[in-house]
Design a protein around this nucleic acid. Structure first.
Lengths: 158, 158
DNA sequence: AGCGTATCATAAGCAAACTCATTATGGGTG
DNA sequence: CACCCATAATGAGTTTGCTTATGATACGCT
């Protein structure tokens, strides 16, 4: 009696995300910009001058994952790593001039792709979806920092 | 006036999926089974004897992606590739005995992880989420097979 | 019967994310 | 001041997904 009609919310979530990314990258390939690189640029544009660890926190990424993305972005000249004036451990991140028009274009492509994905959903549906996903993300961000093993089987009584 | 409060449904979807996968794998590491391997096994258990291309279709994966997953699963002895009796191009897929108990355990871990992610959501919320994600997935499966370039800017009158 | 095309599995190579481990630096405490 | 630990960035290696390309086989059409 496993709920076969709701077998795998995780699989569904994963598939939807993967397909959306695939579709965006089909569109954005000619820009030479991947979805993840775009996400980094988009967030960085709201907090230029941040250091790598801080940006990794905001992205909920492991630092090493971000390092490699930044390596690419620096190599194609979209960001700069500048030294911190006093703390030589820190690298401060800035967008280059070249990055701004790309960001605008990428945002347009993202909107086109999103519209394609959301076809048939009402505005309330979209709001609900955002709300639910935000809840899930918060739950998981908290959970991932918790040790496992609390198999919480029958903890209904709170 | 870009909807800054709804900046990036795609990012949100991607993050939620990635974190859910991360959390599942924290739990399942001792099984030596990843989320994707589990998904393949779970689907295969419903259609043993299928050939690789057919399974790739059902998973909405590219065939080469599935090949590598199957390589791993075959190496650790969870699946078998058997020749088709008449068509020598085909490899028919079967679970081994060893796979069944693992599947049961993985399903349990998946349920624990899912409960963790869905904390605070009502049953109706969950149903809604499933419905919305299914719609999005269908839209994207169709879209990815379509050429791009139909930038459909003002096709409201469709 | 034979040729051409379609289909199946796979190879090669890239991107993104992870874990685990390492190096460099800063800062607090004895 | 010296030492130890925390923090910042990164290196190495794995998994999963993609695109593009290839070899082998089957099948249809003339």
């Amino acid at each position: 009696m496993t709920p076969r009609s709701v077998p795998t919310l995780g699989f569904l979530l994963h598939d939807a995300a993967r397909l959306l990314r695939k579709r965006f990258e089909q569109r954005a390939r000619h820009l030479g910009l991947t979805r993840s690189q775009w996400q980094v640029l988009a967030l960085l544009s709201t907090c230029e001058g941040i250091h790598q660890g801080g940006l990794a926190d905001r992205l909920d990424l492991e630092p090493i994952t971000l390092v490699r993305l930044l390596d690419k972005l620096e190599a194609i000249g979209l960001i700069e790593r500048r030294p911190h004036p006093t703390d030589r451990r820190l690298r401060l991140l800035h967008l280059t001039e070249k990055a701004h028009p790309l960001l605008v274009t990428a945002r347009e492509l993202g909107e086109i792709t999103r519209a394609e994905a959301l076809e048939g959903l009402s505005p309330e549906d979209c709001e609900t979806l955002i709300r639910l996903l935000n809840t899930i993300k918060s739950n998981l961000v908290a959970a991932c920092d918790r040790p496992i093993g609390e198999q919480k089987r029958s903890v209904e009584h709170g």
